[in-house]
């Protein structure tokens, strides 16, 4: 069995006074695609943010590639091999498309080259001279937000709601990208609302409810769990 690259245990997190994670625990092994499913406000986005230390306060344990990170500053956590694609995409308007793409510094050897990335996202190659990253369409911005963390050598990708608000044809393209990344051995944590997008891509699923993991199951167990899942997700 592949090595564990991410272990979250009894994670609690707060934004100011509000307590958003109540003992999240889950693990991700190298090369896996794992989803965090759940309703809006269940704590999935907060979990990704907490892994990077982007919440107000956190307690518990988050081990990344064997290193305890709960007390590390955010920029040090990234250097352990974590790439983050935030829900709001976070494309910088004062940077050109190319500057956006090359902004995240290299944190390890073995990242994809800019050419390989343009091969994976041909739209970005066409639009790379665009002076303002935010002038791209929503789908292109989403691709850019993902593309820029592939260059850095990060092997664990935290992807937050990458299909949100995008046209079906773009969602399909993103699905193919995830498959390719998995083939390249990336470890991926997907926070998804769109279960039909996530189901065929993931090895395992965690259902998050009230800031903790309520259920977990493998892709093979999925058919037997659909009823339960519908109840949790309300779909």
């Amino acid at each position: 069995m592949a090595e564990e690259v991410l272990r979250v245990s009894d994670l609690n997190a707060w934004y100011g006074e509000s307590h958003v994670l109540h003992g999240m625990s889950f693990t991700v092994r190298e090369g896996e695609v794992v989803t965090l499913l759940g309703r809006n406000g269940a704590g999935r986005t907060s979990t990704l943010k907490a892994i990077l230390g982007l919440v107000g306060r956190r307690a518990g344990s988050i081990v990344v590639n064997g290193v305890e990170t709960i007390r590390l500053p955010t920029y040090r956590i990234a250097h352990l091999g974590v790439g983050y694609c935030p829900e709001e995409r976070g494309i910088f308007s004062s940077l050109s498309v190319e500057e956006n793409l090359t902004l995240p510094p290299e944190i390890a050897k073995g990242g994809m080259s800019v050419d390989e990335i343009y091969g994976m996202f041909p739209n970005l190659r066409e639009r790379r001279a665009t002076a303002q990253g935010t002038k791209l369409s929503g789908g292109e911005q989403q691709m850019l937000a993902m593309a820029r963390i592939l260059r850095t050598g990060a092997r664990i990708l935290l992807l937050d709601e990458i299909t949100e608000g995008l046209a079906p044809v773009i969602v399909q393209a993103l699905g193919r990208v995830i498959v390719k990344l998995k083939e390249r051995g990336f470890t991926i944590v997907l926070v998804e609302q769109n279960f039909r997008f996530a189901a065929p891509l993931a090895d395992r699923h965690y259902v998050v409810e009230h800031g903790r993991v309520a259920e977990s199951f493998t892709a093979a167990e999925l058919p037997a769990r659909t009823g339960m899942l519908h109840e949790y997700l309300g779909v």
């Binding site: 500053p73 920029y75 983050y84 935030p86 910088f92 308007s93 004062s94 500057e99 902004l103 995240p104």
Partner: peptide
């Protein structure tokens, strides 16, 4: 300069990319 401009817009994200923003 691109680090500076990006950090002006969204310091926590630039930090999440591994830049020592403080």
């Amino acid at each position: 300069g691109s680090y500076l401009r990006a950090a002006t817009e969204n310091p926590s994200l630039v930090q999440a990319f591994g830049v020592n923003v403080p």
